[in-house]
Design a protein around this nucleic acid. Structure first.
Length: 403
DNA sequence: TCTGGGGTCCTAGGACCC
DNA sequence: TCTGGGGTCCTAGGACCC
């Protein structure tokens, strides 16, 4: 009998654009190529590798970066251009494999298992992916290849910039255990401090600690999570079709007193932006969270939930204002330096027609005409059109909509 | 070094229901 | 009259990620 290999192949790619915003600027303005570039808006949003070599990092205050790197060209961010570049890059991802899990505007996991016959080994696919991203989007990208998501991500981090690194399944521990704990997904400044205080500096040392110890130190969630990663257990599959759970916006205000009217006006602007984005995305939500940051950089959040999900501006605005007024004494006393709002508990408009009709007490199709106006005011016309289409498709006689 | 804007996930207590 | 345990939702806060 032939021995059956139980060890899975390294088929997960982590693709991560290098200094994304700065690279887009260098791509679009040839005079910036080869020079230190900082994309800044108060803080450093991105720095080219030329700037990083001088010690510039994200999110360093802009003035500090200028002092550190006087020869740097500082450019204002162009978020539209970055979204467009991201779209082009994700097109390449999707042309490579249907199994794409986006993590942010500039990185994604790709599962290329099963593509060997038609597309070659994962290393070959990764090399081609890098070349294609450069050709079609004009951007450098680093790819890590491994058996698990975590190892693939670490690999791309190690290979940066403009690199490709495959972690051979036979050498995973050898690769993983010497790494500093900061490389572990979920270890930020706080956890790092706690571990350093106990003399733990490498992933191998975390692995040796044992789950019980980690749980006692960091809580059940983080403890188990870190124990698993450090011991090279990461069974998470690449998941497609994930949707956001919240949509929000915020604005830093700088120090100094602001009149209550000014703060309200800012919040209204934010509500408007968020509601607009929700409608554009075809999402409705129920939980409205107002976020405040004070002069001393402490933060609070205050949230309330609506009875029914919505993407209409008015109910969100009313609730947000009520929450803000409750917080007025706090703001008066502590000074405000940031205001933000997000809407969570998101659902997709059109997930089910019933969900749309439920708030109106209509589970069947009798007398639907009368609810059209109500639906429009609640969800907006575009969402209603989609719902109507879906309703018809699922056999409901949803009334035709006036234009 | 004094800190932007977009998110995710986890924890924990209290209300409420069965 | 005094009392369980489980499940779910809501709210607040914290850590983390890019």
């Amino acid at each position: 009998m032939n021995p059956i290999s139980t060890r899975a192949d390294a088929t997960i790619l982590h693709a991560d654009l290098d200094s994304f915003y700065a690279s887009v600027e260098q791509r679009d303005d040839p005079s910036l190529r080869g020079r230190p570039v900082i994309v800044g808006g108060g803080i450093v949003l991105a720095a080219s590798y030329e700037a990083k070599r001088m010690g510039v990092y994200t999110p360093m205050p802009e003035f500090a970066a200028r002092r550190l790197c006087p020869s740097a060209v500082v450019v204002a961010p162009r978020f539209e251009a970055y979204s467009e570049a991201s779209r082009a890059v994700f097109e390449v991802f999707h042309d490579t494999t249907p199994l794409v899990e986006g993590l942010s505007i500039d990185e994604a996991f790709l599962d290329v298992a099963g593509l060997r016959r038609i597309a070659g080994t994962p290393a070959e696919i990764a090399a081609r992916l890098r070349a294609e991203v450069l050709r079609r989007a004009g951007l450098p990208i680093t790819v890590g290849v491994a058996r698990t998501k975590f190892l693939a991500k670490v690999a791309s981090g190690v290979a940066k910039p403009d690199g490709l690194l495959v972690v051979d399944p036979g050498r995973e521990i050898e690769f993983l255990h010497p790494l500093p704990i900061g490389r572990l997904w979920g270890v930020g400044p706080v956890t790092e401090r706690k571990l350093h205080a106990r003399g733990i500096h490498t992933v191998g040392e975390v692995a040796a600690l044992g789950e019980a110890h980690l749980v006692a130190m960091l809580g059940v969630g983080s403890g188990r999570h870190l124990d698993a990663l450090a011991n090279n257990r990461d069974p998470r599959p690449v998941v497609t079709g994930k949707r956001r759970g919240s949509i929000g916006s915020q604005q830093a205000l700088g120090r100094g007193r602001k009149a209550p009217d000014t703060i309200e006006a800012l919040l209204l602007g934010i509500v408007d932006r968020v509601a607009r984005r929700m409608r554009a995305a075809g999402r409705v939500g129920r939980t409205v969270t107002v976020r405040l940051r004070f002069d001393d950089f402490t933060r609070v959040t205050r949230s309330r939930s609506l009875a029914h999900p919505t993407s209409a501006t008015e109910p969100i605005r009313d609730l947000a204002l009520a929450v803000l007024r409750d917080a007025a004494p706090m703001i008066e006393q502590r000074g405000i330096t940031l205001i933000g709002l997000s809407v969570g508990n998101l659902e997709s408009v059109g997930d089910s027609t019933e969900q749309l009709l439920l708030p109106f007490g209509r589970k069947d199709q009798s007398g639907l005409d009368g609810v059209v106006d109500g639906l429009r005011s609640r969800f907006g016309h575009a969402a209603l059109t989609r719902a109507s289409l879906l309703g018809r498709r699922s056999g409901l006689e949803v009334p035709r909509l006036p234009d």
